[in-house]
Amino acid sequence: MLELRLVQGSLLKKVIESLKDLVNDANFDCSSTGFSLQAMDSSHVALMSLLLRSDGFEHYRCDHGNFPMGMKLENLSKILKCAGNDDIITIKADGPGNDTVTFMFESPSQEKIADYEMKLMDIDSEHLGIPEAEFHAIVRMPSSEFARICKDLSSIGDTVVISVTKEGIKFSTKGDIGTANVVCRQNTTVDKPEDATIIEMQQPVSLTFALRYMNSFTKATPLSNTVTISLSSDLPVVVEYKIAEMGYIRFYLAPKIEE
């Protein structure tokens, strides 16, 4: 028996919207830690890792140890679009061997209750171990600013060079029509803490990434006012959006490497 009641159902809607363009189908894992997912895009260039901790749910029951539920994200997105933004979402499944999952949507005043049953699928997914890394630079900035920069640069070029120095974090691209550079300096003198740009640098770092993926990651912007970008030479970048009081969604993107 699995029963997860999420009062802020819109969080789940936003999470799936941020993943569905990159991930076709994935196993959601339910364990005592929480509701989680790890999946790669079909080219194995990006890895997505989601955790919604069990204590963030109003009710969290998961009796079967680690219980993977294979879902096609496009179908899950269709179903979650039927939930109102203020609805409470309950996820129910009988356990291993059962091939359906039920989503129940309750309006805040309880005047409308809907349930949608979705078929589960068997998915062979490879779980990757993500080693603890010492990052050369960790930058926290407003998520809307990061989204704006990725969108702006993709009208000029296909790749972005992200460099962190004492001066700040620089995003550069070039394309047929010209070049673009955007520098964000550390800025902690802001009225609201979420507007700050905070740069922790152990050593300067510069890496090249495909902008198409970065732009996809920014679909998670509605989940958090801030984004954290962690960089180390010749390692995947980690773009993390915290999910209020519940967990996170992390996007890992393999760099482009000079041959």
């Binding site: 990757l128 171990g129 890992y252 760099p255």
Partner: peptide, 14 residues
């Protein structure tokens, strides 16, 4: 020329 690397060359199954 920059070549796109894959996540699987950094993280291994486990």
């Amino acid at each position: 020329v920059n070549k796109q690397s894959q996540i699987t060359s950094f993280f291994s199954p486990g």
